[in-house]
């Protein structure tokens, strides 16, 4: 039964890959990347049960955190044009 979940998650990653290739805006690609990250995290969790190796769950946790932090960091770069921006002013975003 884990095989069904594995195949479904791989299909979902494939669909998100198509969206990230099509675009059209950078935010569409980021959304697709975020979804791929979520699916990869779930895939790691399912694989840990399928192979009977629970250590993979730790990897899944770390992957989930990296996914969130990566998305927020790239967004901050695209919004402010600078990763070190405190983000508290009402300045115009860099174009």
């Amino acid at each position: 039964m884990f095989a069904v979940a594995t195949v479904a998650l791989i299909v979902a990653v494939g669909l998100a890959l198509v969206r990230s290739a099509l675009g059209p805006s950078v935010f569409d690609r980021l959304l697709a990347a975020n979804k791929i990250g979520t699916c990869a995290m779930l895939l790691l969790a399912v694989m840990s049960f399928r192979n009977g190796r629970p250590e993979f769950l730790d990897l899944a946790l770390v992957y989930g955190m990296l996914n969130i932090i990566g998305t927020i960091a790239i967004l901050k770069y695209f919004r402010h044009g600078d990763l070190g921006d405190p983000g508290d002013g009402d300045r115009e975003p860099a174009q």
Binding site: N34, G64, L75
Partner: peptide
């Protein structure tokens, strides 16, 4: 293992709306 799965679920539960909101508001700002 069950506790780790719960932690994974809580991570998704709290962090994914934050990422979605950040995406939408950044797109709107741009």
């Amino acid at each position: 293992i069950a506790a780790k799965l719960v932690a994974l679920g809580l991570l998704v539960f709290f962090a994914s709306p934050t990422a979605a909101h950040a995406l939408a508001s950044a797109a709107m700002t741009r």
